[in-house]
Amino acid sequence: MQVWIEAALNGPWTRARQPRMPLAVDEIVADGIACARAGAAIIHVHAYDPATGRQIDDPDTYAAIIEGIRGVEDVIVYPTIPFVQSADAFRPGAVEMRFAAIESLGRRGLLEWAVVDPGSINLATFDEAARAEPGSVYLNPGEHVLRGLTLAAQHGFVPSYAVYEPGFLRLGAALARAVPGCPPPLYRFMFSDRFTFGFPPAAYALDAYLELLERTTAGSPWMVAGLGVDVRPLVPHAVARGGHVRVGLEDAPFGTEIGNPALVEEMVQLVEAAGGRPATAAEIRRACPAPGPVRA
């Protein structure tokens, strides 16, 4: 059983929540190379301005990261999209601006995968809720989802769906079918111990997602992941059911004291103990094909 291992190197947290996450381009590239050598075939990144410690969505920065890692190791490297949480999401030009970096990278032929999240959620921790604090809102209006899927069809990259709630799966499958030429998405089931969205990392929850996946888009590739979560208890269940796994400081409990390469090494051990074998990037490309950029 080939198991895809993805390493999510940093996420949106800044070092206030994940002190060991890489920020500068050279740090991210070095971390990505180390994770690839540890057994990850997929690397997911957020770009940062190291001077401010804040996330940026600059295509040139992403290009430097992607080319820096892929120039050394043959892995799939893909970026995020900007986090939107206000009425700005609905203003004229917002959808084009949000996907500007993705479109630029697609035109350069640098994307194999990209984030397209098919739904919106309230994003609050249990601690925030206990203090009667509202948390934030992660907005992905339908127009934004369709923009991402249209770019996937145009530039031939796989949409990586973060499925925070079951409705994300249903809407994502329906919209992907409606966009001509869109490559089949990857469905990444998002679990959490710390946040209030979706399900906790439990076998019954994975079974629920898999039943819905089978009834909605049978045979689609899927992965266990999350935010503020320890997915290790799910690994044997995921491997036994033909799924894949994500690990890294974007997903891990806040304040995790070991770095991304060590997290990948541990995940490789868990996968192998469950009877799986870490897949190579070439094997993933064959199993989850995308046509590449559409040329006029």
Rank of each mutant, 00 (worst) to 15 (best):
A202V: 15
V268Q: 06
G68T: 09
L105M: 03
V116W: 08
A47F: 07
G248L: 03
A287Y: 07
L263W: 05
A203Q: 15
A282D: 15
E103M: 03
V72A: 15
W4Q: 09
V239A: 07
P236R: 10
H237G: 03
A34F: 10
P19K: 10
E112K: 07
P118S: 09
L210C: 10
R232E: 15
L270M: 12
A152Q: 07
I69S: 04
L171R: 09
V163C: 14
D57F: 15
E128P: 00
V294F: 14
G275H: 12
F254W: 12
P50L: 07
L146S: 06
L111P: 01
D26I: 10
C182Y: 13
R285M: 02
A89F: 03
A130G: 08
D251W: 01
L23E: 14
R70I: 06
A208S: 14
V158C: 02
G148R: 04
L151Y: 10
S104W: 01
P253W: 12
L110K: 04
F83Y: 15
F90C: 00
S192F: 11
A130Q: 11
D207K: 13
T52G: 03
G259T: 11
R54C: 04
G292S: 11
V158F: 02
D49I: 11
F189R: 04
L175R: 08
Q154W: 02
D57M: 06
F189Y: 11
V158L: 10
G109Y: 11
A281F: 04
F195T: 05
A114Q: 03
F197N: 05
P236H: 14
Q269A: 15
V294N: 10
H144N: 01
V264L: 02
S86W: 13
G259P: 03
A178K: 05
V95W: 03
G135L: 06
T125F: 03
F195L: 14
A173F: 07
A203T: 15
P293L: 14
D127I: 02
V145K: 00
V77F: 01
V45W: 10
E165W: 03
V116T: 09
L213E: 03
E27T: 08
V84M: 07
A30L: 05
D88E: 12
A16F: 10
Y161D: 05
N140V: 02
Y138C: 01
M1N: 06
V25T: 15
P261I: 12
I33A: 04
L249K: 06
